Structure formats: structure tokens, C-alpha cells
Amino acid sequence: MSTRSSADGILVLTGSYTPDTGGDGAGLAALRLDAAAGHLAYERRLPPVPVSGASFLAAHPSLDVVYSTNETDPGTVSAVARQSDGALTPLGAPVGTGGANPCHLTVHPGGGWLLTANYGSDTAPGSVSVHRLDADGQVGELTDVAIHEGSGPVAGRQEGSHAHQVLVDPAGRFVLATDLGADAVFAYRLDTWSGTLKQTAVSLLRAGSGPRHLAFAPGGELVFSANELSSTVTCHRYDAETGMLAALSTVPATEAGDVINQPGGIVASPCGRFVWVSNRGADTVAAFLVTGTALEPIGEIPSGGTWPRGLTLAAGHLLVANQHSGTVAALRVLDGGHLQQAGPAASVPSVVCALVL
């Protein structure tokens, strides 16, 4: 799905927790970003779409279809299609993931498969599920569920595995899944004929780090992890031949020393020189300069709300979904990777992610 802009601005789709998943949001809601002013406002011509627990969104690479996790137990995923008049409509019914509390998903670059990370629950381990996508982008059969094993030392968070993100490496060779509970990144090969996953490697991170999300630098040689439980960011060397990560350097995610902090989203700049991380607790977005294999803190500003989660780059801005304040803020990206508050934040109750359409 290619980014579309018009005189009205850039269309941004947001996902939020709904009343049945502990939030106050509508599910999917559309905003417009005025890039010149850094201003976000509701797109009144596109009413909200009720999608339960829409905690992460992903676009199909070639069709006007968006996929959403439904963070419920048992878990499901939903698809919505963008019509020729711009309207968003459900594409089929929600489909079960074979796991609990799905929190992240991505479409395989070929467009034929949907990959979902199931966080799990007290009774269900973390896992990665695969669904077949038909020619129209509708979610079809569940073809595989890869169960994670592992645990960590942090009581209450790491008694078992908790898959938190699934993505395809830049070479399209491996499917990687972070696991917060197991302090690990699992590597898989996807059989694009059968839709099955074969585990090929496991990269173990520092005990108690709780890796949440990864962001690749351009070219794929380096990958950065936002570590939720240790409140750190790590630069790793990525081996594209094996799917293994090797930690090179680690820095604190925030310079605020008087709060309990949990990093949320992480984004690498298209040029590869900068990394940005959202900090839940400090309620900031921190900027880092990539110097060789080291990360150097270069600034940290308020996130435009409280409990910032998803980060999304859009037309020279970093969009921040602030869950507890129910606001989406646009932070202007300046030369040198620094950030600056732009226009006023838009109100989106229980928002957790944003996707540029």
C-alpha cells in the first residue's frame, strides 16, 4: 500500500483499545497530518471502524488492505479494505490466531501471508501464527502456530514466553520474533508454499532485558532492540546468513533517572544515522545518534502525552501514540536527528499505534 497525500494532508490510521479490551477507543480512526504545520486532525469523511483491541496495524504491500490485531484471548486478526471513495470497510470476519492476546503483525513481502505475534497469557505461551491471504487480501486459513519456549528472571513478567513482535528481515530471508518473556529473538524460515515456519536459530539477549521491538538500519547489518524490562536500547550486529543477533552496545533508553520506565516503540531513520525510542514512564521520546556500533543520546523531549507506545515516521515527523492521555502527537524531525514539538496533538482515546496510508 503506497502512501497517499493530498491538499488535505497525509492520511493516518490509528488503532486503539476498545471497551471490551480495557480501553475507551473506537478501534480504527482516521487522522490527517498537515506536514507543513505539524498539525493532526480527525478525517471527518472517514468514520471510525469498530475493531476490537486494535493494538497494531500493518498494510498489505500491494493492495489497499490494512490488518489489525484484536488483542483478546483467544486472539483474532481483522482486515479492512479501503474502497475507491476512501471508505474503510471490514474485509471478512475476524479470524482466530491460535494464540492469546496478539499484539503485533506484519505481511510477508510477497503479500501472500500474514504473520502475527501472540503475546500469550497465564495459560497460553507466546507464539507466532501464519495465515494465508487470498488474492483480495482477505485473511484465510491458519497454516501454522510456532510455540515459543523460555522464561526470564523478572517476576510477574517472565514466568513464560511472550512474543511481542514479528517482522521479516530486510533480505526477506528470515522471520524474526522478539520474545519479552524469554529474553530472546527467534529466527524462522517461512515455507511460502505451505505457510509453515521452521525455527532456525535463537538469539539470547541479556537476562531480564525483555526485548519488545526491533528496528533495522538500512541495509540490515545493524538492528536495534527496545528492551522493555531493563529500560535499555541495544545495537546488535545482524547475520543475514543465519538470522542471529550479536549485541554490540547498550545504553539507557531515557536519561530520566527518577521514574520506572518501559520503552515502547523504536524507529530507525531512513538514512541509518538516528534511532528514536518512546519511553513509557518518563513520557518522552529519546533520540540517539548511531556512531559505528554505538548509540549516543542526543536529546529527549516530551512525547505530547502520557504512556507513549507506537512511533511512526511521516513526512518529516515522528507520530507518537500516547495511550493513557489518548493523544497522537507529531514531533518534527530536525537536522541532526533532534526532535521538536510541532502542532497540537489530536485526541484519540486509548490510542496505541498509527499507520500512514
Rank of each mutant, 00 (worst) to 15 (best):
A171W: 00
A171S: 13
V175D: 03
V175T: 02
L176S: 04
L176W: 06
A177E: 01
D179Q: 10
L180N: 06
L180D: 07
G181L: 11
A182D: 12
A182H: 09
A184I: 10
A184W: 05
V185H: 10
F186A: 09
F186N: 11
A187H: 04
Y188K: 09
R189E: 15
L190W: 01
L190C: 03
S194H: 14
G195D: 05
G195K: 08
G195P: 02
T196F: 00
L197I: 06
Q199K: 13
T200M: 14
A201C: 05
A201G: 05
A201I: 03
S203F: 09
S203P: 08
L204F: 11
L205M: 11
L205S: 04
R206L: 08
S209W: 12
S209K: 01
G210A: 11
P211W: 11
P211T: 09
R212A: 05
H213R: 12
H213C: 05
L214A: 05
A215P: 00
F216C: 05
P218S: 03
P218L: 10
G220P: 03
G220E: 02
E221W: 04
L222D: 06
L222C: 01
V223L: 02
F224I: 13
S225C: 03
A226W: 07
A226Y: 02
N227L: 04
E228D: 13
L229E: 07
L229G: 04
T232N: 07
T232W: 05
T234Y: 09
T234I: 12
C235T: 13
R237W: 09
R237I: 03
R237L: 14
R237Y: 07
Y238A: 01
E241C: 01
T242N: 09
G243Q: 13
L245D: 03
L245Y: 09
A246R: 15
A246S: 15
L248Y: 06
E255D: 11
V259L: 12
V259T: 13
N261D: 13
Q262W: 13
P263D: 01
G265A: 07
G265D: 01
